[in-house]
């Protein structure tokens, strides 16, 4: 398979903590401007995969490349500055910082002080600028996290469980946002919500016990939820 410039390619990735190995020989490739979703049970190693790509974990073997650049061995902030932004799970925003300060921090890190892109996708944040992160609802936090990651024109977005525990209306809104973002960035997402995956994903990787057990590219299969068979 040839990978055009701008693809996120993971090859032969082995990752572990101490004695325990979590990921075994993971291969995946997300073409530029596409959305790939990782599905799998809790503990399958999906978050470990995203954390490794983002530079928080160092793989034992294997490579992570974006275009022609090798990401392995780079520090998380370097990876982030290259435009590969990681949106962590559990909706972690800075509880003690206001929305404005949260955004300013992202602007400071990326040098991009134009917040229009954030408000274009999440107009709601505009009215919450002076509210502290700790007082936001789960949906608002998720908006802030993704919004923060949009500053500095990201090339790749790694999004971990964005819709977990959110109201259907918010999930619906996030789904629309993901569909719009697809054209501009490459997305790799961990998501348990199969209907949402069926709607937005171009590729689905089923992860089981640290291995990719299936790569589904057929749009009909994705939409029909055939992924479920691999969980």
């Amino acid at each position: 398979m040839s990978h055009p410039d701008g693809a996120l390619v993971v090859e032969g990735l082995h990752v572990g903590y101490g004695e325990a190995q979590v990921l075994f020989d993971v291969h995946l490739a997300v073409p530029r401007g596409r959305l790939a979703a990782c599905v799998g049970r809790n503990g399958a190693g999906k978050t470990t995969l995203l954390r490794t790509i983002a530079g928080f974990l160092r793989p034992r073997a294997g490579s992570v490349r974006y275009g022609s650049v090798d990401l392995v061995g780079r520090k998380p902030y370097e990876v982030a500055r290259m435009g590969i932004r990681y949106v962590q799970q559990d909706k972690r925003v800075f509880a003690d910082l206001t929305v404005r300060e949260n955004l300013r921090l992202a602007s400071y890190a990326t040098g991009d002080w134009d917040w229009d892109v954030v408000f274009k996708y999440f107009p709601r944040l505009k009215g919450l600028l002076d509210r502290k992160g700790g007082y936001l609802s789960g949906g608002e936090r998720q908006m802030l996290m993704i919004g923060r990651a949009l500053l500095g024109r990201p090339k790749v977005l790694l999004i971990d469980e964005p819709t977990e525990g959110l109201a259907p209306a918010v999930v619906e809104q996030l789904g629309r946002v993901f569909e719009e973002l697809k054209g501009q960035a490459t997305l790799l997402m961990v998501e348990q919500n199969l209907p949402l995956v069926g709607r937005v994903a171009d590729v689905v990787y089923a992860v089981k016990e640290g291995r990719v057990v299936a790569e589904i590219t057929d749009p009909d299969a994705i939409r029909s939820g055939a992924v479920e068979a691999y969980l």
């Binding site: 902030y77 982030a80 932004r85 925003v93 003690d96 910082l97 949260n102 300013r104 992202a106």
Partner: peptide, 24 residues
């Protein structure tokens, strides 16, 4: 802004680094 980064990092250093701030 540096102070904001410090306060944020006191709360959660991984998150600050994930935003692209050189925490070191």
């Amino acid at each position: 802004i540096v102070g904001t980064a410090i306060r944020a990092a006191v709360e959660d250093v991984d998150q600050v680094e994930g935003l692209g701030v050189d925490v070191y």
